[in-house]
Design a protein around this nucleic acid. Structure first.
Lengths: 195, 195, 195, 195
DNA sequence: AATGAATGAGGTTTCATTCAT
DNA sequence: CATGAATGAAACCTCATTCAT
């Protein structure tokens, strides 16, 4: 039970970290602010995280697992491959639309790969995993003549860059779904639909 | 002549600011480091820029003008509209490929629009300008039956997001042009080519 | 039986305190380190000692009693007073040779007599006791014409300073007895042997 | 002139460091206290010393040079070797009597030789130098039949330990010269006078 | 105009102590 | 009793900004 309570607090601090690091960047997000946001005392942060860097790493890694899970998931198998891809895109981008500012942290890590080497490698490894995961779907589309012949790896890479670009550039809140719908429609173009 | 000399120094400091802010972010780039990079003394920075924020704003704005000029420029008018668009994309993305880390500063401003309200508005205004600038070309492509019918504004927005996504996600140096060539080819897909 | 067990724990903590305070000084020896060294939990330290200062005082006092006992003890009465003194010196200094870093704590207390007033007075009182204890032996040596006429109090004081100086300056381990033998031989000089 | 002023301030800080480190030990002497004692602001300390450790090292080394100079100096050559030695002792111990608490810092360094390796080695080297410096005088005394035959190195070592012991144990202020006179007289015993 | 010493607010981190379990 | 999570005071250190030279 003591453990239960601890985990709760750790989680609160982590969520506060994710929020403030995302919104303000590493340096501007102070431990004091994070502890206030989490509703714990200043010192308690250090009970759960060795130091600021450790908290930051956790703040990046934890949502990353979610993000990975979403991006590696796909819509159900169906005959209409175009529909299947479009649904997959919707699955992916809906998540990003809700993700708020998290993408900015990923960006931060990429920008300072020396400092956060482990995190960076983790992100890098994921890119490959993502390519592999998307390849069968893309190939299926190409084989059925729905998509033009493009290197599936390149499609995956550009599609991922696009998602990030949209997330980083767009400042809309989740509510403004209309524009997100548009972004989803256009994402499909990167798969090279025959039209 | 005194003015001439001053301007030189101001420029050196600005370039140092652009470099270090881009590479390290706002907080980690210290005035001392910037002055060292610029080859001037510590106090001199404050002779040319009121404070750190002012220097940062200038460091974002100055390259922004270049970036704007490039993104608003287009390849020469020609009969083959597809070729014209592709050349325009090359024009745009070659610049970004060479820009190194500058895009990260833009990102930083977008992420803190409250703090850098003026800069943010400047960026926002540009988006509209960019849409207007690209519209004729897109419309031309659609009229000639080379592109499918899409809202030109949306094409411009998604294309811009894509460019940013590529720049922010990709860590390649300028040298590794192969991948940038690929990114250029795929960018064209966002214009909705009939194929 | 409960009490028995408690006393055991108290002793473990005390020994850990003596060890770590001696080796690292007051500030650098943390309660956490001491608890770990003692093999008890962090909070348990406060069950047996009100606070850090209390533990420190105990850590100084407890070995002090041993030290006192040793320094107040003397070699067996014998006709050859020179031999008796030399054996007494050996008794004293062998103890110090084995004491490791404890002397440093005494030093620490002397250096901060305001802070540890009680301890300091305790130490001061001992000096007088030591003088009294040594006086008969010294006087006996002088009466037998083995020692020159010196104020026995001064002999005791300088001898005590010498022992401390050797202990504080020397970094040898107990093993390196050779040098300690030398130190013992020379200690006798302070008693003013006729030669 | 600017340099002149700087050096003055550096010196003030250093003197404050020597005073407070000696009196309170490393950890209890805070930068804030030291800056206050020196009459400068908190930040100014870091203008002249990289960090607390650096200031501490300087606070040990600077007086060490004085101390070395004194301990390596000797009374003028004269026919009466006993008088010469006694005067040399007076030279040495008068300095220590005035030195206040400095010896405690030396003690601190010896106690933590791993942490302050360079300082420790410096101290260690000095011991040898001291032995060499004292050897001729001791040998002269032995040759003239004033001193008994003892290893000069051992005499030097024990004499040094004695001085330190007196300084560390004695809490008298400089004023109380009487006791220091006694300590000087007894120091001579360590040289092994024939009597 | 150029310099860099001086300042102190504010950041991260440590750690003695309290106290609920 | 034993435990260790919670707390916040206080330490060190950084660095933007001021200002005398």
């Amino acid at each position: 039970m003591a453990i239960q309570k601890s985990e709760e607090k750790r989680e609160k601090i982590l969520q506060a970290g994710i929020k403030l690091f995302s919104e303000n960047g590493y340096s501007k997000a102070t431990i004091k602010d994070i502890s206030k946001e989490a509703g714990v005392s200043f010192g308690t942060v250090f009970t759960y995280f060795e130091n600021k860097d450790t908290l930051f790493e956790a703040s990046v890694l934890e949502p990353l697992e979610d993000m990975k899970a979403v991006l590696l998931s796909q819509a159900e198998e169906q005959d209409d491959v175009a529909a299947q891809i479009k649904e997959t895109i919707k699955l992916h981008m809906t998540y990003f639309a809700q993700q708020g500012t998290y993408a900015r942290m990923v960006q931060y890590v990429i920008g300072q790969r020396d400092r956060f080497a482990d995190l960076f490698n983790e992100l890098n490894d994921f890119t490959e995993e993502f390519q592999e995961s998307l390849e069968p779907l893309i190939r299926k589309g190409q084989e059925q003549g729905v998509l033009i012949e493009l290197d599936p790896n390149n499609v995956a890479i550009t599609y991922l860059a696009y998602i990030n670009g949209v997330r980083l550039t767009t400042i809309d809140d989740i509510d403004q779904l209309p524009s997100w719908n548009m972004f989803m429609d256009h994402a499909y173009l990167l798969f090279g639909p025959k039209q």
